[in-house]
Design a protein around this nucleic acid. Sequence first.
DNA 1: GGCAATAACTTTAAGCTTGAAATATTTAAG
DNA 2: CTTAAATATTTCAAGCTTAAAGTTATTGCC
Lengths: 173, 173
Amino acid sequence: MNEIPLDAETKALEAPGDHKSDIRLWLRLLTCTTLIEGEIRRRLREQFDVTLPRFDLMAQLDKVPDGMTLGEVSKRMMVSNGNVTHVVEKLVASGHIDRRPAPRDRRVQIISLTPAGRTEFRAMAKVHEDWIADMFAGLGEKDEAALMELLGKTKTSVKTALDGKFGAKEDRS
Amino acid sequence: MNEIPLDAETKALEAPGDHKSDIRLWLRLLTCTTLIEGEIRRRLREQFDVTLPRFDLMAQLDKVPDGMTLGEVSKRMMVSNGNVTHVVEKLVASGHIDRRPAPRDRRVQIISLTPAGRTEFRAMAKVHEDWIADMFAGLGEKDEAALMELLGKTKTSVKTALDGKFGAKEDRS
DNA sequence: GGCAATAACTTTAAGCTTGAAATATTTAAG
DNA sequence: CTTAAATATTTCAAGCTTAAAGTTATTGCC
């Protein structure tokens, strides 16, 4: 009666419908991200007097030479349009970015780093890169490669689960 | 002059001081967390009309039978004290939790789930668990175990980097 | 052209989050 | 006992974030 059948490998140890190990995995993933993000946020504020959202937005703009539309920034950063509007206002006010209407479509705003903004961002980015490297310093190259690979699988798995809601059969291009 | 020395394995391919692969790893970690968290947030709101912070706070309280101090909640959730005060007010107002002063120390507030709050939380938690399991469904057991292990190493690595700031030699107990 | 649908962005209301300052209480030293 | 330091929580100001509704501009269809 209280014997546990051992015919299904490790999984047999869990009750049916029990996904506790997935929850633990999720919580650990969240903890890692929260730890790193909180520390980066704190250091950016202390050492450069900049918030993480503003830094992230500048990072998107630094990747391109001639600016980007608000919608593209919103998509890349995975945040709402209203959020981008708000952060952009702050960065325009502080002189880090410029904003101009698109030539062919008056609905569209194009934003780009000012020269000063780009210079300042790159100085911060260099230090930021070192912070991240330090935080991952305890992992060897093999570990990092394996983690990268597994997170790639995770991302795919999550996206599949999300798409499933729409019954999508193919890649929405 | 433009020959790259190949005497240091793979790492030799990167310029000195270049930590781009760590940045990519960090961004991928962040993307995974953001994707999952955003979807959970959305579903909790749509299906249960509850915010993620409130759900998380109730999750902490559900782990213990007799409640917890605000400080302990703050530590476990890794958020500020003021934040806990704010979320607790909302949950008290909605009748999900109770709040009472500690018997021996009048500075301390103890909060606990009301019977109704616990019942409602557990119903949500069950569904939440399935959502998480679905999102990780694309990973096999081996992958999940490996990811769990690597995230454990990552957490240790990050904490070491953070402690380093204080020159800590031992575990602050 | 006229008009409906679509798209880009902004506004709004609500809520989360933080760090710092303030308040209230307890503990420890003398 | 008195007082200084430490602790637990709250308050405050600033800023982030979202979903939904609103505005303006473009596109496709007749």
